[in-house]
Nucleic acid binder design. Structure first.
Lengths: 105, 105
DNA sequence: TTATTATTTCGTATATTTGCGAAATAACGA
DNA sequence: TCGTTATTTCGCAAATATACGAAATAATAA
């Protein structure tokens, strides 16, 4: 019995991006950041600007922001007394490309 | 305090598709089905034809197939003694369109 | 009838995700 | 110094996902 190959890098990468987008709160956040006003050249928004439009608690929103940050799709910039969240343009472009390629199959 | 709106249909739909693709095994399955030989007008493959190329047990593969079926992305056609799995073309086209639209934002 | 083949379902264990409120942090203004 | 504001981290509970082997199913072959 030949042993089985592991998942390809590409499969792992696609799954990782999909996972980051697999919760409606995170889809909401991405849409919001992609469509909010520009600030220092990026689309930005604070957690406080989102909280009234999304049906979850502040701490839960914070957790989803953290996950998107961990996945590299967004980044946070401290601008006291708030934290402005922006799309991580470079990584988002790459993620889009990866999804595009998968879809085009 | 105004109460919060729920997630939009679109956000729920995007998250649902992303969730279906959020595990490398399910990405593997979709890729395999999208690229396998044609059979009765569709790209098809049996679970037995995949099992040696994917690092999970048969029962686990079966579960992932079930999830993709539940999400509507694939369908199974009995062709004894095997079951041929195919992409559900209509739903897959729709799913692609939804992801496209999300990405293009 | 019994074995074989292909695959799923069941039972169960473990891990991960999601959610919340309370407490913590950190800068600023009174 | 003591609130105020904006936000995160902590601690925990509940739900969901992932995984596996064993048993079940269902058609056919011997």
């Amino acid at each position: 019995m030949a042993d089985k190959p592991s998942f390809s890098e590409s499969q792992l990468e696609i799954a990782q991006i999909a996972k980051a987008l697999s919760h409606p709160a995170r889809v909401f956040i991405m849409e919001r950041l992609l469509n909010s006003n520009f600030c220092s050249g990026k689309s930005c928004c604070t957690s406080g600007e989102m909280i009234n439009d999304i049906p979850i608690a502040r701490s839960t929103l914070s957790q989803h922001l953290k996950e998107l940050k961990l996945a590299g799709l967004i980044q946070g910039e401290i601008e006291l007394p708030t934290i402005k969240y922006c799309v991580n343009t470079e990584n988002w472009e790459r993620a889009k490309q990866i999804l595009e390629n998968f879809i085009k199959q």
